[in-house]
Amino acid sequence: MNRMDINVQWVFTSTALLGLASGMIGTFALLKKQSLIGDAMAHAALPGICIAFLLYGQKSLLLFLIGATCSGYIATICIQFIVKHTRVKEDAAIGIVLSVFFGLGIVLLTWINQHEGGNQSGIHDFLFGKAASLTGSDVNVLTVTAVTVIIMILIFFKEFKIITFDRAFAQGIGIPVSLLNGVLMFLIVSVVVIGLQAVGVVLMSALLITPALAARYWTEKLEWMTLLAGGFGALSGVAGAYISLIAYAPTGPLVIIFATVLFIFSFLFAPKRGLCSKMIRRHIERKKLQSQQLMYKRGEQL
């Protein structure tokens, strides 16, 4: 097998695993109504990555992961602080943190450009993602992180389920809610960070939201929803990477477009909650009602 084939395999494996992990963790983010926090964290990861690069001097996915996790976590703390202590509402707090952190990231990026020579192409791919630029060690880090996230979700599934749906009850039965919330946040940040290189800062949030939202249309059970979201995510990852390989277009946007197509399909045609089936059901009910009314009328006439 030549090098090209191995590279292609890497790309497929990593985008599939990434999609799987982000779809699964995205389910919880979506149900906790925190979809846009993922967006904020993806943007907030940039300064962390730049600082890690400045300290270490070269590209290393593991260090980037640590740096991005730190700055992503600081960003969530900032959002919570602003919401809790000022009259500024959550949406504005997210917007403030997102744009200011990203601005700081851009400042650091230009600083690196000027002071560290032209050796920043590795960082550059983080803005829009370039799955083809993944190297063997990147794939290792990505695989390990994604698998860890998936295992963590499986281990804490019951706890996450309870704190997502009924926080007060979870507190009542003695589950450490804030600790588990922290774990959940940490998992989201990790997925966002490993996704940055494959799909980029801007679109990483979509990989959290869109597959989960599509899965929401097919089922009412959290177990199925998590599995489906993971499946949709993995499918979009592979399909997007495949199209990007044959069309020479950037991977990230294609992954997202494919995920959105899945969402639109679910939104329209899902058996119970889909738009079409709702309309058909309404139509049938109306017909039923009309025929009932007709029968009542006839009954009165008799």
Partner: peptide, 14 residues
């Protein structure tokens, strides 16, 4: 919001 803008942005980038 998240679904709509990321999709439109992705189409723009492609």
């Amino acid at each position: 919001i998240g679904v709509v803008f990321t999709c439109l942005f992705a189409i723009g980038v492609v």
